[in-house]
Amino acid sequence: MSDETPPPEYGFDRLPEPLPGRAYATMAIVLRVGLLLSVALFVIGLVLFFVERPLETIADLAASQRFLRFLVPSVLVAGLAHGDPTAILSLGMFTLVATPMARVLTGMFYFRAHHEKVMTSLTLTVLILLLVGSLLLGPYLAHL
């Protein structure tokens, strides 16, 4: 608890020690970089997609499973190396989904540095749950 004393009408006597300002700054940067990166990938991917396939219809899209293959990292890398717009769009989605995960990881780092064992454990649990959802639960549901 910090030494800061709130006025009596608030109903409590002392405030918790705040996290360092750089924890907030780092998280804001993580979120902004992740968002900008994914937005850029979305824009580039969409432009390339419609330049390459101007006459594609919604039926063509529904009939194809072309995005599923990019769930395999080696296929995604190969697609990106060839400038495949569907690979670029998929990377944009992966980046956007990974951004809050990176934010949770950043939070865990600062809680650990601040010697807050319970908060570190809670944050680690959240991170594990997010990874389990994406890496185990999702693929399991795909094959039901």
Partner: peptide, 24 residues
């Protein structure tokens, strides 16, 4: 954000995301 990422991660890995719909 984190809550949406949890649900989106499952849907994405299960093949229920289409970037041509989701991105715009």
């Amino acid at each position: 954000g984190v809550t949406a990422a949890a649900g989106a991660g499952v849907l994405l890995a299960a093949g229920y995301m289409n970037p041509v719909i989701a991105a715009p």
